[in-house]
Design a protein around this nucleic acid. Structure first.
Lengths: 231, 231
DNA sequence: GACGCTATTATGTATAGACATAATAAGTCA
DNA sequence: TGACTTATTATGTCTATACATAATAGCGTC
């Protein structure tokens, strides 16, 4: 009823002022106390809004010194990294999956280097193709450590992709994600129906459980693929 | 002194339990009240931690129903989008900048389509090269609307890149950022010292002030460029 | 059993008060 | 002057309380 002002409302208003340069980059922002008075809210509420802005990198806060608009505002973008299947379905297409190969082997030199592991480790190496409306969407080249995920030895990955299988079966504590452009390798080109050397968009993900490497995956998309976000 | 438990501590512990599958995907998480009792904190503190996890997409919360670990960890990654100059300097290289061309023209068809603007509008069209240790780092193709940013007509962009100039001079209210791979155009190939058609990593950014388009930029990097984040 | 109302419950959020902490300013002494 | 100490101040954070809201469960009626 007497709908009190929410910290989200305050955040929106503060963001607006920053966006339209009421408070230009580097400018000092009034203290929480005075903002609280202005908005008719408590300091805690203003604080919640300011913390959110700080987390987004829009403002910089220092005790005693006060808050100011980040000199280089919006330096953080957030991208969602969905499961391939969801991504395809969200695009309104029919999802298709097929396993191209599966073998248990020691890691190659590149894999050892990326995951900081020895040659003695054993990995499941998978090559898969994800499709949208029967057209190639993503070529997945994945390595799963049997030390970290013994159950992967008995999974066949014929119907469920390694991504989804791992989500449900393999814990991890930290991960690294990278995007880059590359020239399609022979495998990638063949799977995606492109010419060798043509541009592909690659997402590479590494995960660990503590110090133990869990999985390394290289996901190649045809160049039409875009990763988009709104700020 | 009597250092009380912080919501960040609680968040870390909850994240750990999720990561190691104490609470596997889809599992129900104890209510705030009981977590508060377990951690010896107030419900507000637990709530702050849970809200953070929800914002990260790690847990799903519903009133009455309670909280559960997200079944599809739609983990969102946060990437920093720094100024080119800072990016280069952070890589330990010497930053270099040069303006390749500058002209005031009506927008091309592609620009009009992307920015939803008419052919009558006037834009500053800039082509720039950013270098790291004298080697090409990024080729920037930028359009700035003179309707939104009249001051751009009198800026020469000879010494300061449009990116930095705009940050200090042009307000905007919303923006769209996209990453994708593309084949190098003739201009891009020439500027970056690559063969035409070789893969480039492209960042495209569009910004508006309200409904008014402000700027459109296409930033092409050589394929060695990686955008990395840790989750 | 189908429907609709009500009670219950977990989360969502605001508030006031308290104390902690970091950074700065002001003051003090050699 | 320079080094040290103290006061001040803005943010950081927790607590306890209150009420709002959404979703569910349970109940009663026909």
């Amino acid at each position: 009823m007497n709908t009190r002002i929410s910290w989200r409302d305050i955040r929106e208003e503060l963001m607006r002022r920053i966006a339209v340069r009421d408070w230009p980059p580097g400018a000092e922002i009034p203290g929480e106390e005075s903002l609280a008075a202005e908005f008719g809210a408590s300091r805690a509420t203003v604080n919640r809004a300011m913390q959110d802005l700080a987390a987004r990198g829009l403002v910089e806060r220092k005790r005693k010194a006060g808050s100011r608009v980040a000199s280089n505002p919006v330096r953080e973008a957030r991208f969602v990294i969905p499961l391939v299947r969801h991504e395809v379905e969200k695009a309104g297409a029919e999802y298709g999956y097929s396993l191209l190969s599966r073998e248990v082997v020691p890691p190659t030199g590149i894999v050892r280097a990326r995951l900081q592991t020895g040659a003695a480790a054993r990995f499941v190496h998978l090559r898969c193709l994800h499709m949208a409306d029967r057209r190639p969407w993503q070529y997945e080249d994945r390595w799963i450590s049997l030390d970290a995920v013994p159950a992967a030895a008995s999974a066949d990955f014929e119907t469920v992709g390694p991504n989804e299988w791992l989500v449900a079966n393999a814990p991890f504590s930290n991960a690294e994600y990278a995007f880059f452009a590359a020239a399609a390798s022979e495998d990638e080109a063949a799977a995606l129906g492109l010419a060798v050397g043509s541009p592909v968009f690659v997402g590479e993900r590494l995960t660990w459980l503590g110090e133990t490497p869990v999985t390394l995956v290289r996901m190649a998309h045809p160049p039409s693929h875009r990763v988009v976000t709104r700020l």
